[in-house]
Design a protein around this nucleic acid. Structure first.
Length: 296
DNA sequence: GAACCGTGGCG
DNA sequence: TCGCCAAGGTT
């Protein structure tokens, strides 16, 4: 969006921002990082209770790192993509061992942590440490696609052109840039939404390229569908749910009960073991990972 | 770069 | 109803 509109977006944010627990000066960098992991591909409303429980139980990276990775997987509950729990535990371990237990404030150090990619590194650096970074999540990318490019949706993968657009529009002062970043994201989440944008409530609609072009429909390649029923992902989810809800090790029979087809069931279980989400204890006995070397 | 990785709510 | 979508990352 044009630079001149940054003030409008920030003013809109001050007036309309949701009161989320990971925002504001009382949220530690660790709290911000936990929220960012949980929010990857997961709606805010489902994250809120898990976020509170996690921070109460593990208020610091070291607290989490000193616990078993399986406990992180268990406490992840039904947030989805449980590898995120494992990676958050691994990130906490790296922070404990390499950064003296403090979430690093250097972008490249953040990027080096497990489960932290381009978006999350920029988000933590910006939100927690008030630095100047282009924070390109799906909301921000959609806002720029519409206001600047005149397209309904951004490309599938983040492009250099998008990074250029965001960087060019970004306020120069770090503190302002940090507020602007979360403001644009919030605008995308609340007003410039994917399905039914509320252009009547948008502070920049007057100069939005997409609206001015008559809101042309998306005409790019089919957007990635996510079939689920009958896939390995569904089986993995069912298997892991059994492990999560059990107090200790689980017998093969309990796992076999969740899916009829034995080949796919075995493949899914093997995948979970390969991913480190499940640990074989003995023949036909499994449990959530302890973090200790597997005895053979 | 495409495919894969969970789960649930909403239009 | 059911396809689309949600603050992505890794291989």
């Amino acid at each position: 969006m044009p630079h001149a509109l940054n003030d409008l977006v920030i003013a809109w944010y001050e007036e309309n921002a949701r009161d989320l627990p990971w925002r504001g000066p009382d949220a530690s960098p660790w709290a911000v990082m936990v929220s960012e992991f949980m929010l990857q591909q997961t709606p805010v409303n489902r994250v809120l209770p898990m976020y509170a429980a996690w921070l109460e139980r593990w208020p610091t990276p070291t607290a989490l790192a000193d616990d078993e990775p399986g406990e992180a997987v268990r406490a992840w509950g039904r947030l989805g993509y449980p590898r995120r729990a494992l990676r958050l535990h691994a990130a906490a371990t790296a922070i404990r061992d390499r950064h003296a237990g403090e979430v690093p404030d250097v972008h490249d150090d953040l990027l080096a942590l497990p489960g932290v990619g381009e978006y999350t590194a920029a988000a933590v650096a910006s939100f927690a440490f008030r630095q100047r970074h282009a924070v390109l999540d799906t909301n921000v990318r959609r806002v720029f696609a519409r206001t600047v490019d005149g397209s309904e949706y951004p490309p599938q993968a983040t492009t250099a052109a998008e990074r250029r657009t965001a960087t060019n529009a970004m306020p120069v002062a770090a503190e302002t840039a940090a507020t602007w970043a979360v403001a644009v994201m919030e605008l995308g989440a609340l007003v410039c939404t994917a399905r039914t944008p509320r252009c009547g409530d948008c502070p920049v609609s007057a100069l939005c390229a997409w609206r001015l072009a008559g809101k042309p429909a998306y005409d790019g390649p089919p957007r990635r569908g996510q079939t689920y029923a009958g896939t390995d992902r569904q089986v993995r989810g069912k298997l892991l749910a059994v492990l999560r809800e059990a107090d200790g090790p689980v017998l093969q029979a309990s796992l076999d009960a969740v899916w009829d087809e034995p080949i796919q069931r075995a493949r899914a279980l093997d995948g979970l073991v390969a991913d480190g989400l499940v640990e074989p204890v003995a023949d036909g006995v499994y449990r959530l990972p302890t973090g200790a070397p597997v005895s053979t």
